[in-house]
Design a protein around this nucleic acid. Structure first.
Lengths: 155, 155
DNA sequence: GAAGATTGAACACTCAATCTTT
DNA sequence: AAAGATTGAGTGTTCAATCTTC
């Protein structure tokens, strides 16, 4: 059964559930991070991405790629985070155009303060509702979605 | 295998894929809607939700619930959409506190202009990568996530 | 007092243009 | 010219306070 758009009701249901679940879950995570560490979700994600990178430093474009965001968004965010002394910009040795972002002790401290409660919250609002089998299916599908879109649309 | 947070690497991978896929997919949808109809994703979703409701009219809180957003966000959005003559506010007969939002002919026209291309885009960036079996699993999981969070967190 | 909704200020994101280095 | 990044203006979102009706 499909309508004039070629999409079945069951498919629309999935699409809506995807959008709505993200909005609701993202909201809960934001509240928890703000409460426990005074960090926005994007700030936490940025710090974590940098700390988990091999050299503990990432360029603007690499952060954008990791998070699926636009470069200008990351650039503004880093600016605000730098004002708050959560990260610092450092010149890149290889390429004078590039900038490497590192996490300051203050940024690391805040991330540490949040990580336990954050993990618990991610579990509570999302992971607790996914069985191991379901997890495998979902990871496979979402990775496929990400990979098909590639790295286009940067700004 | 788990770390100090009690969350396994496989679970983190799913969580990250969820956030990243949403960011990327949402971005593509936004671009298409802006290009084909001059509508933002939230505007399109709002109009569609209203048109699909039984009486073709929805209150602010109902829109917020349907989309998983905060009421104040919807209120501001409706204000901007009203300026652009996409929707109109009408007094609610049952309850003088409430407002019912209806779609104007102009709003309906714009939504119609976008719906085919939008459906094709949703298919291209998301649904095409989900088999029927996978669709059932994902819908079940995401609905569980939504239902567990309930309607809390409205503002 | 609670529910439905709105408001304004502060904060965040997008878009297009720009700058520098490759 | 392309890649990496930044900027400023315009637009959108959040937070807390407020208003009216139930």
């Amino acid at each position: 059964v499909v309508d004039a758009t070629g999409i079945s009701p069951e498919e629309w249901t999935l699409w809506r559930a995807f959008l709505r679940s993200h909005a609701r879950v993202s909201r809960e995570i934001d509240l928890q991070l703000q409460r426990d560490a005074g960090l926005a979700q994007g700030e936490y994600a940025t710090i974590s991405a940098i700390l988990e990178s091999p050299r503990r430093r990432l360029r603007i474009g690499e952060i954008a790629e990791a998070l699926g965001w636009e470069k200008s968004r990351v650039s503004h965010l880093i600016g605000r985070m730098e004002q708050r002394s959560l990260v610092a910009r450092e010149a890149c040795a290889d390429d004078a155009r590039a900038v490497e972002i590192v996490v300051t002790p203050e940024g690391r401290r805040k991330q540490l303060a949040a990580v336990r409660a954050h993990a618990a919250e991610v579990r509570r609002v999302f992971l607790d509702h996914v069985s191991p089998d379901e997890r495998e299916v979902m990871t496979r599908v979402l990775r496929r979605v990400i990979d098909e879109l590639g790295s286009t649309g940067q700004r």
